[in-house]
Simulated assay, not measured.
Amino acid sequence: MHRFFPSASLIVALPLLIASAHAQDRIYRCGNEYTNNPQVAKQKGCTLMDGGNITIIEGTKPAAKPAAAPTAGAPAAAPRNGGERVDNAAQRARDSDARAILEAELRKAEERLAEAKKAYANGEPEKQGIESRNYQRYLDRVAELKAAVTRAENDVAGIKRELDRLGPR
């Protein structure tokens, strides 16, 4: 029987090799930047980061938009920051567009409400197929139809509230 006995130097060197394979360079933080170069870190006055591994994924930088002057005859684009006011003509045009959209949505919602009420038939819709033999299925469908009518009524009421918020024409 032949046994293998590793030498003492191999026993001492093995843990050092494993530790050095897993060792990570020191990471320095310089504001919002990171580096593992000690000379750069010393020049910039960076601080050493302690603790586990650090993963940094750089994002894309937004492209700067050139400031474009409004063309003649076209209203100035409205700022989104809320600090500046929009001229009256542009605001009236927006309000008019919003009213037209809401009125179209109101017509659609009223049509859906009329269809839902017709299908609901005041809580007594005609039985369909198996519902004549399965009364629970009929009751479930009636409950769904009633819920559809309620939703449609709420939609119409909500759109009317929005139109009222816009004020009179």
Rank of each mutant, 00 (worst) to 15 (best):
D25W: 06
D25F: 08
R26S: 15
R26N: 09
R26V: 11
I27G: 00
Y28D: 00
R29M: 02
R29V: 00
R29E: 00
C30Y: 01
G31L: 04
G31M: 03
G31V: 01
N32R: 13
N32H: 06
Y34P: 00
Y34M: 03
Y34L: 07
T35K: 02
T35A: 05
N36C: 07
N36I: 07
N36H: 13
N36G: 12
N37C: 11
N37A: 14
V40I: 11
A41K: 01
A41C: 06
A41E: 01
A41M: 04
K42Y: 05
Q43I: 08
Q43V: 07
Q43W: 02
K44G: 00
G45H: 03
C46L: 02
C46P: 00
C46G: 01
T47L: 00
T47E: 04
T47A: 02
M49E: 08
M49Y: 02
M49D: 02
D50T: 06
D50N: 09
G51P: 02
G52M: 13
G52W: 04
G52Y: 07
N53S: 13
I54R: 01
I54Q: 01
T55M: 09
I56N: 06
I56V: 15
I57V: 10
I57A: 13
I57E: 14
E58Y: 14
G59A: 10
G59Q: 10
G59Y: 03
T60H: 08
K61F: 03
K61Y: 04
K61Q: 15
P62Y: 00
A63V: 06
A63W: 00
A63P: 01
A63H: 05
K65T: 08
K65R: 15
A67K: 12
A68L: 12
A69D: 09
A69I: 14
P70Y: 09
T71Y: 11
A72K: 12
A72H: 08
G73M: 11
A74L: 11
A74T: 11
P75Q: 08
A76H: 13
A76W: 09
A76R: 12
A78M: 06
P79L: 08
R80A: 10
R80L: 15
R80V: 12
R80K: 11
N81T: 15
N81G: 14
G82C: 05
G83R: 05
G83H: 04
G83K: 06
E84A: 09
E84M: 10
E84N: 06
V86T: 15
V86I: 09
D87K: 07
D87Q: 09
D87L: 09
D87E: 14
D87H: 13
A89M: 11
A89I: 12
A89C: 09
A89P: 04
A90G: 04
A90F: 02
A90I: 03
A90T: 10
A90E: 02
Q91F: 06
Q91L: 15
Q91W: 05
R92L: 09
R92E: 14
R92D: 08
R92P: 01
R92G: 06
A93G: 11
R94E: 04
R94Y: 04
R94Q: 06
D95W: 02
D95C: 02
S96N: 10
S96R: 11
D97A: 15
R99G: 02
A100K: 14
I101T: 14
L102M: 12
E103P: 04
E103L: 15
E103D: 12
E103K: 15
A104N: 12
A104K: 12
